[in-house]
Design a protein around this nucleic acid. Structure first.
Lengths: 201, 201
DNA sequence: AGAATGTTTGCGCGGCCTGAAAAAATCAGC
DNA sequence: GCTGATTTTTTCAGGCCGCGCAAACATTCT
């Protein structure tokens, strides 16, 4: 990787870091793009070469898409064969980004803190989940052999993203066993869905 | 209702109408607030006395909350006793606003057209659904006797809102029988959820 | 009619975001 | 390491958004 590419990643991280830090310090509307850029030793115009909006710098713009490998395993009906359980697996691996879950825990905590404190970020976050939903729907459709853009796949994927959303709200960050806690919450959520909408019990 | 109140509603409608019309004509980013205000025979400053943002004027700011009566019937376990069916009833009545569904069909068609053509409106719309979700969760919690802010209620409500979202996307507007079509789609969606997440079949 | 209350308007301003072109940094080849 | 090509950063100008404020205006109430 050349110097150019490395520097770009550096300024991107600097901008994102400055944005997060200043926002947590003062609140989003007391921070201007100019200040963020100054903090990252960059002109204000350059900020917009990296992020379209101030909010994007905070939430991040990683596509939130699962690993290619995990995706294919899921589509093929794996890894366990149980739909909900495999969904848990796929979602947990997707949300962490390409690498390890633990490695991104600090960022996840920050994101949660930001979303709690700055309501203006909620729409941005919801849109991001919405984009991810599309991909999940096609994965579910492929796994079940449904035609593309199938209504059922979309609905099932939407419910799954809703589960993710509420689970992330409830995760007890700070613990060390939080990955397993996430799994548990997801499993319970899917069970709840089954009970609520399933055949009359 | 006094003259003052009537005038306010009139300018509100005028602003909203102008915003929708101009946006459908030229696209959202080719329309300025000044133009909308001028079209409604009102100063630009007045626009912001009614709507906080240009987008709000398009999506509307009705709280999207169900009738008090429908809400209580649902909480009490009615009208049919079947959870999914009662949810369909509640949602259909909520989405229409206080009055008749048919009366608001034109607006619904417009909203859909806008959402299709102007992606910037999607976050606004998603936030609106998100707000409505909170109320739905407490209603579901009360009906099932769960404690407040129960995880299960939230997840079930989230899934329901997701169902709404995808159903609205698929509704065949233009037909005359579209209210019944909405009900059908909702019912099918809930059945799909039950099949997907319910006990292994 | 006149006072009280609420609404509209003009004005100014800070901030967001964009386009275009000059300036600086990096890269590829020699 | 020099040179020219490519990419990134910066500067500059500018439109639009959204808000606070105080003056003008409209309505309600007595």
């Amino acid at each position: 990787m050349g110097l150019r590419e490395r520097k770009k990643q550096a300024t991107r991280r600097a901008l994102q870091g400055a944005a997060v830090r200043l926002t947590l310090e003062r609140g989003l509307e007391k921070v201007t793009v100019e200040e963020i850029a100054a903090e990252a030793d960059v002109s204000a115009r350059t900020f917009f070469n990296y992020f379209a909006t101030k909010e994007d710098a905070l939430i991040g713009d990683a596509p939130l898409t699962p690993d290619e490998a995990d995706h294919e395993v899921f589509v093929a009906g794996g890894p366990t064969g149980d739909f909900a359980e495999d969904l848990v697996h796929l979602l947990v691996n997707s949300l962490a980004g390409p690498g390890d879950l633990a490695a991104h825990r600090a960022e996840a905590v920050q994101r949660k803190e930001l979303l709690d404190r700055e309501p203006q970020l909620l729409p941005v976050f919801l849109s991001r989940l919405h984009s991810a939903e599309q991909g999940l729907a096609t994965a579910i459709g492929q796994r079940s052999g449904a035609p593309e853009d199938d209504f059922r796949s979309e609905v099932v994927a939407g419910a799954a993203m809703s589960v993710i959303r509420h689970t992330l709200k409830r995760v007890p960050y700070g613990d060390e066993a939080d990955i397993e806690a996430v799994r548990d919450l997801l499993r319970r959520a899917f069970v709840n869905l089954g009970e609520a909408y399933g055949p009359t019990d």
